[in-house]
Amino acid sequence: MKKVKVGINGYGVIGKRVADAVVLQNDMELVGVCDIVSDWRIKMAVDKELPVYAFDDAFKKEMTTAGIPIEGNLDDLIAQSDLIVDCTPKSIAAKNIEKYKASNTKFILHGGEKHETTGHSFSAENNYESAINLDATRVVSCNTTSILRTLTALKRADLLDYARGTLLRRATDPWESHLGGIMNTMVPERDIPSHQGPDAQIVDPELNVITSAIKVPQTLSHLHYWNVKLKKHATKDEVLNAFKTSSRIKFINYDEGLVSNNTIKEMFLDMGRPWGDMYEVAIWEDMLKVQGDELFYAYVVDNQAIVIPETIDAIRALTGIEKDGAKSIAKTNESLGII
């Protein structure tokens, strides 16, 4: 089997997770990871014996001085890769794409970048086939991914009329809590809809969805509350069966002690997931209510992990090594322990 050669630019919260996931795939080869830092973060990649590249010669000098073995610079990584997954911070990735285009290397960006940077936005269960053999795509953000998974499941069952959601957003990534974020306050996003609803409509223009968002002083995850108008009166079992058509939705129960995002995180740590990552959308089954043609439910989104399986599927789609989205999803799920 010919393996796709994957390079990763940016070895942070998302990049290190994508790197580990790529290593688990039998149809992919991790060429290396690229960054600009010289601290403990990139030294973790060295400890894992991953080939490390510096963004340019100036950073190469700094990293070499810090004792980090460097294979080359970003241009060298691009030259050896069939595809680059750009996991650099928001707005940085958009500045890198000219390098990828100049070398005719396929690339994947993430939800921090605008749709226009690639012209295609990706969600595996929605539009895998439309990404096959494209030059680039953008894996939508963690919150948008969760919206698409859940609402698409309802749409497949011909239950979805329209949806209105409120997002309680984590203030910052856990490892950056000391740098900023918010404390003893809540900050509503000014615009309604918040960007997640329109972003989901880029992937599926038929979705009638409006979102509002509030930043809250915690860092573990996002929490969503949804009110959905169904096309018809339905039972709770009909709704649950619709959600079960997604392999990346997991049911949890409040009555089993999973009463908060920290208890959910603890469960995934106990399950042996790396970093306690939750790739699935975790919906509270015993909180879910159906009243006539109205549906109410809540779920938790792991902002650091949910896009990882999507990114692996996007690699297969862009390179055309798997034309069947369902087969790619199943393969990715198995490799990551999504049951």
Results as ranks from 00 to 15, higher is better:
Lys16Tyr: 02
Ala21Phe: 02
Val22Pro: 01
Val23Lys: 13
Leu24Glu: 10
Leu24His: 08
Leu24Gly: 03
Gln25Cys: 06
Asn26Gly: 13
Asn26Asp: 14
Asp27Asn: 15
Met28Ser: 08
Glu29Ile: 01
Leu30Met: 05
Val31Gly: 05
Val31Ala: 05
Gly32Val: 08
Gly32Cys: 12
Cys34Tyr: 06
Asp35His: 10
Ile36Trp: 06
Ser38His: 14
Trp40Gln: 14
Trp40Ser: 14
Arg41Tyr: 09
Arg41Val: 11
Lys43Cys: 07
Met44Ser: 11
Met44Asp: 11
Met44Glu: 08
Asp47Ile: 05
Lys48Gly: 09
Glu49Pro: 04
Glu49Met: 09
Leu50Arg: 15
Leu50Asn: 09
Pro51Asp: 12
Val52Ile: 13
Tyr53Ser: 02
Ala54Arg: 01
Phe55Asn: 11
Asp56Ile: 10
Asp57Gln: 15
Phe59Arg: 07
Phe59Gln: 08
Lys60Met: 12
Lys60His: 08
Lys61Met: 00
Lys61His: 01
Lys61Ala: 00
Glu62Val: 03
Met63Val: 02
Met63Lys: 06
Thr64His: 07
Thr64Asp: 09
Gly67Trp: 00
Ile68Tyr: 08
Ile68Val: 10
Ile68Lys: 08
Pro69Phe: 03
Pro69Arg: 10
Ile70Arg: 04
Gly72Asp: 15
Asn73Tyr: 10
Asp75Ser: 14
Asp75Gly: 15
Asp75Lys: 15
Asp76Gly: 00
Leu77Ile: 08
Ile78Tyr: 06
Ile78Asn: 07
Ile78His: 07
Ala79Glu: 09
Gln80Val: 03
Ser81Trp: 01
Asp82Ile: 02
Ile84Gln: 07
Cys87Arg: 09
Thr88Phe: 06
Pro89Ala: 07
Pro89Gly: 05
Pro89Phe: 09
Pro89Leu: 09
Lys90Met: 06
Ser91Asp: 12
Ser91Leu: 11
Ala93Val: 01
Ala94Val: 12
Ala94Glu: 13
Asn96Pro: 00
Asn96Phe: 04
Ile97Met: 11
Ile97Cys: 10
Ile97Lys: 09
Tyr100Gly: 09
Lys101Glu: 13
Lys101Pro: 09
Ala102Glu: 12
Ala102Lys: 11
Ala102Val: 08
Ser103Met: 14
Ser103Ala: 15
Asn104Thr: 01
Asn104Ile: 01
Phe107Glu: 09
Phe107His: 10
Ile108Pro: 04
His110Val: 11
His110Thr: 10
Gly111Tyr: 05
Gly112Leu: 07
Gly112Ile: 03
Glu113Asp: 08
Glu113Asn: 06
Glu116Pro: 07
Glu116Trp: 07
Thr117His: 15
Gly119Tyr: 05
Ser121Ala: 14
Phe122Trp: 01
Ala124Cys: 08
Ala124Arg: 03
Ala124Gln: 04
Glu125Ser: 12
Glu125Asn: 06
Asn126Pro: 00
Asn127Leu: 00
Glu129Tyr: 00
Ala131Met: 05
Ala131Lys: 05
Ala131Phe: 03
Ala131Tyr: 03
Ile132Gln: 02
Ile132Asn: 05
Ile132Gly: 01
Asn133His: 07
Leu134Asn: 02
Asp135Met: 10
Asp135His: 05
Arg138Thr: 13
Val139Gln: 13
Val140His: 15
Val140Ile: 12
